[in-house]
């Protein structure tokens, strides 16, 4: 099945909306950790589901083991938000949060879940806020989020998404990443939406572009 990319205007609008939302998430992270957070230029793409795993692998880096936390969202849009951490990420977080002792794995995971929840909430919340005027005019209700849960531990990034387990044919993939100044920490936030939501998002973006 062929995949229809976003138009240039749609992609451009999605990128700017994501950029603004990411700024809010980055600021929360900076406050939480007390360090300067470098923000990335958001990457936006519509892909065949079979290509998503590979795309994530090339963004995050191959041959490195990652731990990932997922949160799904549903309502007028649905999809998955996935936060990906490298191996050192958890240790760096514990260190920055001022934990003196070496965290055991349970504490580490709890910390990852908390931080992921903050990033996803701010990022997705920031996107929703900006398109609210449009979605509300169409009578769309609120989105709801699942609790964050551990998706994978110490696996290569390219095997994170198993296309056989999803019924989607293609996905809108949005990726932003946060690096911490002077630290060996990077976390990627990927948002994935399936076909029906992509079509709704296209319409929302068209209206967004037309409003400027």
């Amino acid at each position: 099945m062929s995949v229809r990319p976003l138009t240039e205007d749609q992609r451009d609008a999605m990128q700017e909306i994501t950029n603004i939302a990411m700024g809010q998430a980055g600021s929360l992270l900076a406050t939480l950790l007390g360090v300067f957070v470098n923000l990335s230029v958001p990457r936006i793409n519509v892909l065949a589901l079979s290509d998503v795993a590979d795309a994530i692998g090339s963004m995050v880096g191959r041959n490195i083991e990652i731990t990932a936390v997922r949160q799904s969202f549903h309502g007028y849009l649905r999809g998955e938000a996935i936060v990906i951490y490298g191996r050192d990420g958890c240790k760096e977080l514990g260190d920055l949060m001022g934990y003196d002792e070496v965290l055991d794995r349970t504490d580490e995971i709890e910390l990852l879940l908390d931080v992921s929840n903050i990033l996803v909430g701010a990022c997705l919340g920031g996107i929703i806020d900006q398109i609210k005027g449009i979605t509300e005019a169409h009578g769309a209700g609120e989105l709801s989020f699942s609790a964050p849960s551990l998706m994978a531990e110490n696996v290569p990034a390219e095997v994170l998404i198993n296309p056989d387990k999803l019924t989607w044919t293609h996905a809108l993939l949005m990726e932003v990443n946060f690096t911490l100044e002077g630290r060996n920490f990077i976390s990627h936030l990927c948002m994935l939406m399936p076909g029906g939501s992509i079509e709704k998002m296209r319409n929302i973006l068209d209206e967004f572009v037309a409003s400027f």
Binding site: N19, A21, G23, Q24, S27, A30, F36, V37
Partner: peptide, 9 residues
């Protein structure tokens, strides 16, 4: 004009 609203930025 930026989305990067960190006070340090």
């Amino acid at each position: 004009v930026s989305a990067d609203i960190q006070p340090i930025a």
